[in-house]
Design a protein around this nucleic acid. Structure first.
Lengths: 152, 152
DNA sequence: GAAGATTGAGTCATCAATCTTA
DNA sequence: TAAGATTGATGACTCAATCTTC
């Protein structure tokens, strides 16, 4: 990524590398502090912030940027720990709902301090006053790529 | 990532999500256009930009943010395609050098247009005038996390 | 036939253990 | 004993195929 269009390729490489390191470090600290993986935490939060605390498997997969089969297995793991439960859909017997349990809500809450610490340590200081620009750009990237994915 | 310190957690989530989507999309286009994975491309470029076009396995692993065993296997795949070669270290018989072949150099060059297109499409437009801030922040993140990793 | 969810096969990452050399 | 590199075991993801229901 070092041949042409110097600014963008540099930014791109640094962005990806930064994200890679961040993800790894945060995941390590999360696992050490709470036993939850970052993806698992993400699913629990997504469920928690839904008004009915339940979502279709496909909806979860889409939001977490995971394949359907990946989400099936992730929910398998969460269900084995009792953090979520599967329930049949009343209106569509093909599908199933993933429901957040009280234990899952507690686990999410318990994991937050470790995650927050990791974010502040690894992200907060480094980003500093660029935080807003980074957030804006990141949202634009994610939105653009998702739109691009929807087209396909 | 939605409980406290709103700016940073938002930025963090968007950052990671953006990076995830970007990586996936770019990897897809790369694979379709050139047959190289992004990691493979990264190794080839790293070797190409070294003056002697050769690096120790550990050095490669460190630069690519991969574990030693991961790099062993990645180089296995590249070597099977004839894009790099392993050579014994003259001064340290424990180690081995990974050397870029002419075929590898050509493959790297041939893969660049597809990668460039993917970068411009997915990254360039979305980032726009925030490119510099994003690049600065990303470099700081990567550097900070690597220092943190070196401490450990 | 198409869509939601799951399962099987394959890929690629990691950690821990091993082998060789310093 | 420690360090460089590899190997074995394991985990988590993907794609393709399957099963059920629309």
């Amino acid at each position: 990524v070092r041949d042409l269009c110097p600014i963008q390729q540099e930014a791109f490489a640094a962005y990806l590398m930064g994200a890679k390191v961040l993800t790894q470090r945060v995941a390590q600290r999360m696992a050490a502090g709470s036993g939850l993986s970052f993806e698992e935490y993400d699913v629990l939060v997504t469920l928690e912030y839904d008004p009915s605390h339940r979502l279709r498997m496909s909806e979860l997969a889409e939001r977490a940027l995971l394949s359907r089969s990946g989400m099936t297995r992730l929910v398998d793991r969460l269900e084995a720990q009792g953090l979520v439960a599967r329930q049949a859909c009343p209106d569509d017997r093909r599908g199933s709902h993933c429901v957040l349990t009280e234990k899952g809500r507690q686990a999410r809450e318990a994991a937050w301090p470790a995650l927050r610490e990791a974010i502040l340590e690894l992200f907060g200081e480094a980003v500093g006053e660029d935080a807003e620009a980074v957030a804006r750009a990141s949202r634009a990237i994610a939105a653009g790529a998702q739109a691009c994915s929807a087209r396909a």
